[in-house]
Design a protein around this nucleic acid. Structure first.
Lengths: 254, 254
DNA sequence: GTGAACCCTGACGTCACGTCGGGGTCAAAT
DNA sequence: ATTTGACCCCGACGTGACGTCAGGGTTCAC
């Protein structure tokens, strides 16, 4: 309980260098609970627990500043959060693995992918960085459910998911190109397809929830595709269509 | 075929910044195939392929210097290698996930782990960094087999594996503490246990192969435990015992 | 009481870029 | 024909997360 560890002992226990501990002390990320009368750093068990968390989050590529924020959150379930991050990371890498396997298959069949196709299939925007997504989505029920569901997806699932989404997005881009207004029945139907896609693949998504999410499309964040890259004004268009669709549904219910 | 991409086009295609491309050009990691007469960088499809590989390896945390070396290797199957790296990384994270789940279970049972136990179970030395392991082991048959086998291990497998190894190592530490010579029959028997463990969990390992691996123990590298941390002189002792054991076996066969 | 092994605090080096600043280039619109 | 805005160049300084000395104090076992 009351045993304190010297720098080198602490460093070895968590697998970092002494210099790293000095650094963390300097920037205030992990401060030793007390010092010997000669000024030696003495780390308590509590310090070590904190340090261990820092190391864990760092392993997953978070910056020290972010880590400090996360750790500042009193009342956050670190184990649960770490688990989520890991699961997200694993599914990210599994998605990459899928791509590799597909390329290997393509190569075996004598086909080479163009850079553009590779980007398509790679979908690196798609598998967004977990912590950033967290900042956008907060601790919402939807986020958690999304994490849980996607964690179990196979390579084929991801493939199907992406294809379905691409189909809907294509039709949306076409609609905005045609000059179809976002309140047109066709646009609303596409918004409905989008909602069902989300509901099917990510998390429960009724019309009200979908309206709540619409703002994310308008702000054209990283979490999905960059809609405006597909067609100018598309991100706003999608937002408006979703809102119109949600409105339509409400009026048929009330 | 002959289409060239400008910096920004190339950058967006692979998902990096323009500055990054400037940097890679400067250090010679990815040089654009040619330049416009105004001095604009023009990336060919081949350049993009190279760039894509760089980005991939970087995503997995390799340093640019390492990446340069890997790419310098003419005649290396990048897709295969990338696959291996990914698989290794995934199994690494899955091992971490196991630990988290075990801690969650422990917490549910009202038990808290001490830092030392956490380190034990975390085994971060154990799940070594893949590229470093690769440098130690080269492209040997053993390495590849190890990758393939361990990729399919469940959390329980890893747990069992670690426990078995810990048991053998414990007995070895005891033996060196007793002053038992490495050529003693007891030491040789322990070396044999080590060999069977490797053969069972990692890759085919006959006595000759094992003798070949012995040097890794002596050099006390990261790939396994730091043997000398368990007992002074243990790394050399294990090496000697393995060699003696291999010798013994040969004489009974010849 | 004297090494060897640890500890301290600067302070400078490094890697992989981010971020200006000043200035040329190019295609389209005026 | 020029202007506008988006794009390009290079040089240089800034930054995050440490690595790596240099110079000097501390602890502990022999």
């Amino acid at each position: 309980m009351a045993d304190d560890y010297t720098v080198s002992a602490a460093a070895e226990l968590v697998g970092v260098s002494v210099r790293t501990l000095h650094h963390y002390d300097q920037i205030g990320l992990v401060r030793p609970g007390n010092r010997s009368n000669a000024g030696y750093r003495l780390y308590s068990d509590a310090d070590l627990r904190r340090l261990h968390r820092v190391v864990f989050y760092r392993e997953l590529g978070l910056e020290l500043g972010e880590i400090a924020e996360i750790l500042a959150d009193r009342d956050v379930d670190h184990l649960g959060r770490q688990r989520e991050l890991l699961v997200a990371r694993i599914s990210h890498y599994e998605a990459m693995l899928t791509v590799i396997d597909r390329e290997l298959a393509a190569r075996a069949a004598g086909i080479a992918l163009t850079p553009r196709e590779r980007r398509e299939v790679f979908g690196q925007d798609f598998v967004a960085h977990a912590e950033q997504a967290r900042r956008e989505w907060g601790d919402s029920k939807e986020f958690v459910q999304r994490q849980q569901r996607t964690a179990t997806y196979t390579q084929d699932d991801w493939q199907r998911l992406r294809e379905e989404l691409a189909a809907i997005n294509g039709k949306l881009a076409e609609a905005v190109g045609d000059g179809t207004p976002a309140t047109d029945i066709k646009a609303m139907d596409l918004a409905e397809e989008l909602r069902l896609h989300t509901d099917r693949w990510f998390h429960d998504c009724d019309h009200d929830t979908h309206r709540g999410l619409a703002v994310h499309y308008k702000e054209n964040r990283r979490s999905g595709r960059n809609y405006d890259d597909m067609a100018p004004g598309l991100s706003r268009y999608v937002h408006d269509a979703i809102v119109a669709n949600a409105e339509r549904h409400r009026s048929t219910v009330d």
